[in-house]
């Protein structure tokens, strides 16, 4: 229901705005809905607002069911690229 995509924070401005980048497309987004934002963070953008900060790859916990599945099929531990 809600189109949101990951983008990277380039610059944090002082008016609750941040410049974000999506593969060469740059725009300002509102930082009103998140806390502890840092330059370089990957964040989720929905309609011009940052709605969440993404967890780093190495900090992720995959579902046990999928861990098992990928181990069984020899497709590696981490489910995603």
């Amino acid at each position: 229901m809600c189109l949101a995509i990951p983008v990277q924070v380039k610059e944090i401005k002082n008016n609750n705005r941040a410049v974000v980048d999506n593969n060469g497309v740059n725009f300002e987004a509102s930082t009103n809905l998140v806390e502890n934002l840092k330059v370089g963070d990957f964040v989720l953008i929905h309609a011009g607002f940052i709605i969440e900060i993404l967890t780093r790859d190495d900090a992720r916990e995959k579902l046990a069911l999928l861990e098992e599945f990928y181990q069984k099929t020899g497709r590696g531990k981490n489910g995603r690229e």
């Binding site: 809905l33 998140v34 806390e35 989720l44 709605i51 969440e52 993404l54 967890t55 790859d57 992720r60 916990e61 995959k62 579902l63 069911l65 999928l66």
Partner: peptide
């Protein structure tokens, strides 16, 4: 109820946004 979007979704979500 399982969470297969753990890179974004936390158990308690984004409380700042939700409380708004």
């Amino acid at each position: 109820v399982l969470n297969n979007y753990e890179r974004v979704v936390r158990k308690n979500g984004n409380p700042k946004a939700f409380n708004l």
